[in-house]
């Protein structure tokens, strides 16, 4: 994503604050995966994976990896007490049934209405949607973690997505290296700026109007 490791962790650390005790959470690939590092161990949070685990734990120590125990990205993981395995159909039954409290995923574009585009760049890369459509459409809260701007410096938060959608009106919150933004009633509300960025900087680099209701806090 072109963000430094500290910035990536800052975003992940902020996202983890949204996670409450006992929640069922799915973390996507990339920065979302880092969120797991910041969920307190005593919260009883159950991490869900599309390949069929509820109760995924952290990475095993070197030498203790098991090729048949991995996350949806194919990387070795462990389990926490209370975990279970199931087939992929059941993994998505859990999603469609609305049992996921939070999904954290990456995106190419997010619109002010909460539309998300994250699986197709026409004429360039078409990786496929994987489980993103199911997750973004069916989770109670969808948090998007991404760069505030693309490689050319264009805003990724826009009035209307130009890329093919993953979900219509699915996102509830956007966290970037510059800001924490809520999407409420199809409007963007600036909640926090990320240190060391300013409100002016965020407004300027966002492609849709930002509402500022209360004092904007700075997240360190």
């Amino acid at each position: 994503m072109g963000l430094g490791i500290e910035t990536r962790h800052q975003i992940a650390r902020r996202a983890a604050l949204e996670i409450e005790r006992g929640m069922i959470v799915n973390l996507g690939i990339g920065i979302p995966t880092l969120v797991a590092d910041y969920i307190p161990g005593n919260y009883g949070v159950m991490l869900h994976t599309e390949n069929g685990i509820l109760g995924m734990g952290g990475s095993p120590p070197p030498g203790k990896e098991d090729g048949n125990l991995s996350n949806a990205g194919g990387y070795p993981v462990t389990l926490i007490p209370g975990a279970s395995y199931f087939d992929s159909a059941t993994a998505f039954g859990i999603i469609r049934r609305g049992l996921l409290d939070i999904t954290v995923l990456g995106a190419l574009e997010v619109s002010e209405q909460g539309d998300i585009a994250n699986w197709i760049v026409p004429g360039k890369r078409v990786p496929g949607m994987g489980g993103a459509i199911d997750l973004a459409q069916k989770s109670k809260k969808v948090i998007v973690l991404m760069n505030h701007s693309d490689k050319e410096g264009n805003p990724k938060i826009v009035k209307n997505c130009k890329l093919p959608l993953t979900v219509k009106r699915g996102a509830h919150m956007i966290i970037t290296e510059k800001a924490v933004i809520d999407i409420e009633n199809e409007k963007l509300v600036l909640r926090e700026v990320m240190y060391p960025h300013s409100v002016e900087e965020v407004v300027e680099s966002t492609g849709a109007p930002l509402e500022i209701r209360n004092e904007v806090m700075t997240f360190q």
Binding site: E50, D87, S88, A89, A91, F92, G93, I95, R96, M129, G130, G131, A132, I133, D134, Q137, K138, P164, L165, T166, V167, K168, R169
Partner: peptide, 29 residues
Amino acid sequence: PQGTLAEKIRAGGMGLGGILVDVGFGTIV
């Protein structure tokens, strides 16, 4: 979409004609 694909395969194995799903409305799906 991954969940729809898994369920279409499951339906085939279960001897069903198909599934009814709303995942992907509002997208090119």
